[in-house]
Design a protein around this nucleic acid. Structure first.
Lengths: 344, 344
DNA sequence: TTGAAAGCGCTAACAT
DNA sequence: ATGTTAGCGCTTTCAA
């Protein structure tokens, strides 16, 4: 028993192959009688179109690729999910490729995507500098939308590629202003390396807040690190254990925050009196910690949705006039973990 | 400028289409000269095979579907990631479909998968009872591996379908034993509904521990709920605010744990003296909380890896003799959040 | 409006 | 070992 093809349907309905195809696709040139007969036959036989064959013919696979470094990262997962939902509604399937930040995997995935004729790609390269991944993707000819990264050839704010960006700079600046307003003069920013846009932008916003307040930039301590919890813990211990320790900390809300909080606890620093802590990203950990951690929040879902929308726009071909990029806002959620520094 | 086909390569190498195909696929019946020439021509032209066309011919898409209710759930994400890694190594692409527990979406995804000729499926249906999703998947004829769910027609432990199961029952039983050993007689289990295997198994293990200890089963309080943090919070407040409140809590380590911890804090219950808390799932939150939360831990990655392995086995056709299901262990990680109940 | 036929790019069966 | 040919199931000209 083989699969039921459109041929079988045509035969059962007593019409030609072409007519069956047109009828099934709601084409304009079919008589009511044929449309009815074909639909009936299809239903009766339980016909299901073969997308592979269709794709081969139409040169469109109906699939979108998603190239991301770490799907399991809670700061990405929501984005992927939202994008998938929107794309599925539009009839596309989402193919994911986790790259673990390895350029070789990125290249391989890009080639794979091309070979599979994916119609479009959502991508967050592990490093902005990785031109090759980029070119590989673009070489496919299908539209590419960037997730919160700068394109290799984009000079900061003028890349020609559609992208959904999060205003990490504005967020970091607002957070830093807030802490400065509270009276802090030595603040540390704990963030993963500056290789990628989010980190870079945060550092820029962080430093800008010091500059605009006319403060000694030496008080703006940038500690870049990998996002491993243990490393963050050791690093935070060293930072907080020193004699001239910062009075406030801004930490990425994943494992880095976890490590920092552990370090504070190890050193018997009580929040917010001995130390103010602010989380970048509003995670469960930040919300439920005692005291609850003041956090920078942005919508992961909006990133995914906006990216899907941008891509669909291109796919439909009306991307010419429309906006090519979106900048999503970051809000400061005030909670209990920040206060004026203790007088010394 | 069109895409370079295998035809072009054959022509450039001065051989026939068939020879080029054989050479490219490392077939056994090609002379060294042809193999070399074809490889050279392919490289020189930058030939990339078209998977779509190949799939149409071979009736194998080289893609695996992953049907899951919520990719953004940290308790799933790691599994998906690990599965993707293993499958990619084997040359497959992972297609994800997020179903948000909606049966309609599950059905739609199953149909879509069939139409796209996916070679296999990894699935964690939103509800075990949903036969239809199940049949739809199986109807495709391609192998299906279940992720920590009971198949609709499986009677608990005897389903014929390959599956990767986590020993939630054993874990819950061990955790409950531990708390009972500490002296607790009133313990609450906070878990999402019993619609799905993990919840059901935990409840079974929880109650079994009471039974084997010869304790009054009335002390085993099962509170099933959705995993929304706010609901869990309200529920936990009611539970802990009552006169005859439990002295220990076992909570699923996602938002439910977060809600419970907030509730404990709201009620000024200090851990572990006033209340012992045990997390099901070893999340960042559990590890970094003060005091650190004793937790049940299992490897998400192992689930994904094992599932991928099981599927690949079937795909290779040697699934006949091999094990059809895996039961992964759950460990109890002792930390600081549990102690003997206060004397009253 | 409808049917016949071409062909998407590839692999595999069949000749040679 | 190599070339030739026939499709995979579909959409889309091109005639009629």
């Amino acid at each position: 028993m083989g699969r039921i093809t459109i041929r079988d349907v045509a035969q059962a309905a007593g019409v030609s192959l072409g007519s069956a195809s047109r009828a099934l696709n709601g084409g304009k040139h079919v008589s009511a009688r044929i449309a009815r007969d074909v639909a009936a036959a299809a239903k009766q036989l339980g016909y299901e179109p073969d997308f592979l064959a269709r794709s081969l013919r139409t040169r469109s696979s109906g699939m979108i690729g998603c190239l991301v470094s770490d799907v399991a990262n809670p700061l990405y997962a929501g984005t992927v999910q939202a994008a998938e939902a929107r794309l599925r509604d539009a009839g596309y399937l989402l193919v994911i490729a986790n790259t673990a930040n390895e350029p070789a995997r990125e290249r391989a995935a890009a080639a794979e995507f091309r070979g599979r004729r994916l119609d479009g790609v959502l991508v967050a390269p592990g490093s902005d500098a990785n031109n090759e991944t980029w070119r590989g993707l673009v070489a496919g000819g299908s539209p590419v939308v960037i997730l919160d990264r700068d394109a290799p050839d984009g000079d900061g704010d003028d890349s020609p590629w559609p992208a959904v960006l999060v205003d990490h700079r504005g967020g970091a600046q607002a957070a830093t202003r807030y802490l400065i307003g509270l009276g802090h003069r030595r603040i540390a920013l704990l963030t993963p390396g500056a290789r990628m846009r989010p980190g870079r932008e945060r550092i820029a916003g962080f430093q800008a807040a010091f500059t605009e307040a006319g403060l000694d930039p030496a008080g703006a301590i940038v500690s870049t690190q990998e996002s491993s919890m243990d490393f963050a813990h050791g690093d935070a211990l060293a930072l907080l254990g020193g004699s001239n320790r910062p009075t406030a900390l801004i930490a990425l809300g994943t494992r880095i925050l976890a490590g920092a909080l552990r370090a504070a606890r190890d050193l018997n620093l009580s929040l917010p009196n001995d130390l103010s802590v602010l989380s970048v990203g509003d995670t469960d950990l930040a919300a439920v910690h005692a005291p609850a951690i003041t956090a920078l929040r942005w919508s992961l879902e909006d990133v995914g949705r906006a990216a899907a929308e941008l891509l669909l726009q291109r796919l439909r071909g009306d991307g010419a006039g429309a906006a090519t990029r979106a900048l999503l806002p970051v809000d400061l959620v005030l909670r209990e973990s920040c206060a004026a520094p203790a007088k010394t």
